[in-house]
């Protein structure tokens, strides 16, 4: 149905978009970016794939039901929020873990904030794809 050009370009672009979306997600901690915009870019990759190869193929490439991804992401974000409460801080307060930290070096900082952002990423990715696939398959 679609042209060879679209399909060939898609093969290159999908991987690039997905990689870019993860870069956006990680960059969002201190600079413009984050889970929301990352999720949108990631969804663009799969939408492009659906345009080139049909939504059935895109669903197979995604492997999971997009709605499950969205709800799973919601759960992840919720857990990250509640995790802030457990050590006695407020809800959604960030908790940090510095792996290999020394006097001068912070090591590898891990935080519940990243977990929350990842949740947002999955919510956006899942719900946008659920909507677009549903519209694609309507006709």
């Amino acid at each position: 149905m679609t042209s060879l050009i679209v399909r060939a370009a898609t093969r290159l672009l999908v991987g690039l978009l997905l990689l870019f979306s993860i870069w956006m997600l990680l960059r969002g901690h201190n600079e413009p970016g984050g889970g929301f915009i990352g999720g949108l870019i990631g969804a663009t990759g799969f939408i492009l794939y659906a345009v080139a190869h049909g939504s059935k193929a895109a669903r197979e490439a995604l492997r999971l039901d997009p709605r499950s991804i969205a709800v799973g992401g919601l759960g992840l974000a919720l857990l990250a929020g509640v995790a802030g409460f457990l050590p006695g801080d407020g809800l959604f307060a960030g908790q940090w873990l510095f792996i290999g930290a020394t006097e001068t070096d912070k090591g590898t900082p891990l935080s519940t904030i990243l977990l929350f952002d990842l949740g947002v990423y999955l919510v956006v990715l899942g719900s946008v794809l659920a909507l677009v696939f549903a519209l694609e398959e309507e006709v």
Binding site: G75, L78, G81, L91
Partner: peptide, 19 residues
Amino acid sequence: DLLLPLPILIAFATAILAF
């Protein structure tokens, strides 16, 4: 601090389980 967001959190948690 907990009671205020609780109605929202319960509704979201219910949504996840119900799904």
